[in-house]
Design a protein around this nucleic acid. Structure first.
Lengths: 142, 142
DNA sequence: ACTTTATATTTGTATATACAAATAAAATTA
DNA sequence: TAATTTTATTTGTATATACAAATATAAAGT
């Protein structure tokens, strides 16, 4: 049974979650070559692009709670991909050389993911979906 | 910062997850009056509508893994809202009278949730979003 | 200067969800 | 009918995510 066939297909909660899970799966698959989950990957790329970025800003970029960011950073620290320095109430996150080496591979992951979902759904359709999703999310309160 | 403002707003993984989390939040809020999470609620309503339904079918209806269904049922069993009977390899799930009493309240939760998100996003827009989400999900493999 | 309030981050705890393996029964095949 | 394969469900374990409370610092107000 596909999503449209479900008795809940007209429910926004159901549809958005079902889609997100499917896309998550696709993304996870594509990120396996670097041994990171998509969220760890996107966080790490952000840290590489903005060395010294603070957890609070990462939370905004990734639209996740600060506590979730802390947890993601902990994992990346264990893997020696980032380091944290804390001064006062401010924490800065920096990429390690090992992380920087990984950057091209991560770009490939994103590229492959993009290629896969556009192949499945069509390039134009994919673009439209993202637009609709963003528009909807912007209207919902935080 | 809203979703569109994020550096990842053009990424399908990011957008679909961000939207799903926001909608989840709204749904959780609206389901609080009955003391259930949305997924428990939808599962329970399905069991009431189809008494004796098997976990495998529930998994299809809700587009969740069978193991997840087992876990959801366990919770509802603890709360004395469903009972399970197993014969051979087949399990049947039945609602308790307590669950049936809750049905109107659950309908109200769904109604309120619907009212809230259509108020925020517009009725026509909401309908369109659901349609786009389903269409996209159907194109992604399971 | 002292007190209060606001901000940034982390911790403790709880959640839903999934995968892979285990179990057990039924269906099929030889 | 015995052996094999398929099907239904559960269990063990791991994950990302969140909320609420705790911590600690900085900023603002008096």
């Amino acid at each position: 049974m596909n999503v449209s066939g479900s008795r809940f297909s007209q429910c926004l909660y159901f549809s958005s979650n079902a889609l997100a899970r499917k896309i998550e799966k696709l993304a996870v698959e594509n990120w396996k070559p670097v041994g990171l989950s998509p969220s760890h990957g996107y966080l790490l790329m952000t840290v590489i692009d903005e060395p010294g970025i603070q957890p609070g800003l990462l939370a905004e970029h990734l639209q996740l709670q600060p506590s979730t960011i802390t947890r993601l950073i902990e994992k990346l620290e264990e893997k020696k991909l980032v380091v944290r320095t804390t001064e006062g109430k401010v924490t800065n996150v920096y990429p390690t050389p090992k992380a920087k080496e990984l950057y091209p591979k991560m770009q490939t992951c994103i590229g492959n993911f993009y290629r896969e979902h556009t192949t499945l759904m069509g390039k134009e359709e994919s673009r439209k979906i993202v637009q609709v999703l963003n528009k909807a999310a912007d209207k919902l309160v935080d």
